[in-house]
Simulated scan of single mutants.
Amino acid sequence: MPKKSSNWLFYGVAFPLTILFTGLVSSSWWIWASAAPSTFGAKVRLTIPDGMPTQMIAQELEAAGVIRSSLALRLWLQWQSLRGSEAVSLRSGTYDFSTNQSLPEVVAQIQTAKLTEVRFTIPEGWSIAQMADLFEKQGFFAAKDFVAAAQRTSPKRRPWLPEDIPSLEGFLFPDTYQILPSEATPDRIIDLMLDRFEQVALPVYKDNQSGKPKVKVSLKDWVTLASIVEKEAVIDSERRIISGVFWNRLKKNMRLESDPTVEYGLNIKQTPENPLTLDQVRTSSPYNTYLNEGLPPGAIASVGLASLKATLDPASTDYLFFVAKYDGSHVFSRNLEDHEKALQAIDKKIQQKTPKNN
């Protein structure tokens, strides 16, 4: 009897103590495992690809220092499933985490798809080709895919788009945009930029042309000429003057003779040290306004609001020529003789600044 009693005493005390000890250890571990890895809140960006298994996601989060334990994450998901939670699965995407987030907070962020949007900025004066290179460098998609998408100019895309434009050049509004990485496709980005043009630029055109406009112009020609003004103008105070020069030349049936149109047609970029050569200026191209009268087939760059407005409100001058001083400003002339003198003076200054090779 005493022996049997001692056995009962052992099991009656030791077993509950074991359970209690195990519970305390488990509880302590869970408190540690579910807590934030750090109190400093360092930022960690992580991309979860489509179809990645939960176990691998947990391991990636642990390796990145976002959570303390991949096992704890899996256990938390199992607990949510047992409770009948609706949001149990982890969604793919790019997320910005903070190392001072607890495990439940991290899981909730992924389950509710609080994704990180990426930002990109298209400067005024950029061409479709430059945009395409940027998107490829940011890892969105191949540059050629964006160029191909920008060739689709059907009015079905936007009813206000002119029917005879060679591409969407000029209608992709320059601005800063935000988009989810998973949505960053050529067509989606083009839609964003066309929407912005419709919101910002199109009302300016409609309001101007519906009243008593200083110049009557089609939407296509407006954007085309404004893109040339955009590429020529550097100083804001000169935009309306440059616009006025081009309108004066068009009214007199003079060729525009704009260097940026030649550069666009030949896909080159001149510099003060390496200006356009005579052979380049004489090279045939639909965009060469030294050889062709009137406007080129379409725009040559994205156009900011300032140049769009300046094209509708040209300065009233009798200037017919201008030449860049390569400091952002221009010399404006009323006749060819004064223009040639300005060219010679600027060429002389450039030669004086260019170091001579011994």
Score class of each variant (00 low, 15 high):
D133T: 15
D133P: 00
D133W: 11
L134W: 02
L134R: 08
L134E: 05
L134D: 09
F135P: 07
E136I: 07
K137A: 14
Q138I: 03
Q138C: 09
Q138N: 10
G139C: 10
G139I: 03
G139P: 11
F140W: 10
F140H: 03
F140D: 04
F140Y: 14
F141L: 13
F141P: 07
A142C: 05
A143W: 07
A143K: 14
A143G: 10
A143R: 14
D145A: 15
F146C: 13
F146P: 04
F146K: 09
V147K: 01
V147C: 06
V147T: 14
V147L: 04
V147H: 03
A149N: 07
Q151A: 12
R152E: 08
R152M: 07
S154T: 06
P155I: 03
P155T: 09
K156S: 13
K156W: 04
K156D: 14
R157C: 11
R158Y: 10
R158W: 08
R158H: 07
R158K: 14
P159N: 15
P159K: 13
P159D: 13
W160Q: 12
W160G: 03
L161M: 12
P162W: 08
E163L: 15
E163N: 12
E163I: 13
D164G: 08
D164F: 05
D164W: 11
P166A: 11
P166T: 03
L168R: 05
L168H: 06
L168D: 06
E169W: 00
G170R: 00
G170S: 14
G170L: 01
G170I: 02
G170D: 02
G170E: 09
F171L: 04
F171K: 00
F171M: 09
L172V: 07
F173N: 00
F173A: 02
F173L: 03
F173K: 01
P174Q: 07
P174N: 05
D175W: 01
D175V: 02
T176F: 08
T176C: 14
T176D: 02
Y177G: 03
Y177H: 03
Q178W: 12
I179Q: 06
L180E: 12
P181I: 08
P181S: 06
P181T: 14
S182E: 09
E183I: 04
E183V: 05
E183H: 11
E183Y: 08
E183M: 13
A184D: 03
A184Q: 07
A184G: 09
T185W: 10
T185G: 07
T185S: 15
T185A: 13
T185H: 13
P186F: 08
P186A: 10
P186M: 07
P186E: 14
D187R: 08
I189M: 15
I189T: 06
I189Y: 05
D191M: 02
D191V: 00
L192E: 05
M193C: 02
L194I: 11
L194A: 11
D195M: 10
F197W: 02
F197G: 00
E198L: 04
Q199K: 09
V200W: 01
V200Y: 02
A201M: 08
A201K: 06
A201N: 11
L202P: 10
L202F: 11
P203M: 04
P203H: 01
P203R: 00
V204H: 06
Y205V: 01
Y205I: 00
K206N: 12
D207L: 11
D207K: 08
N208L: 04
N208I: 04
Q209A: 02
Q209S: 12
S210Q: 15
S210E: 15
S210L: 13
G211A: 14
K212I: 04
K212W: 05
K212E: 15
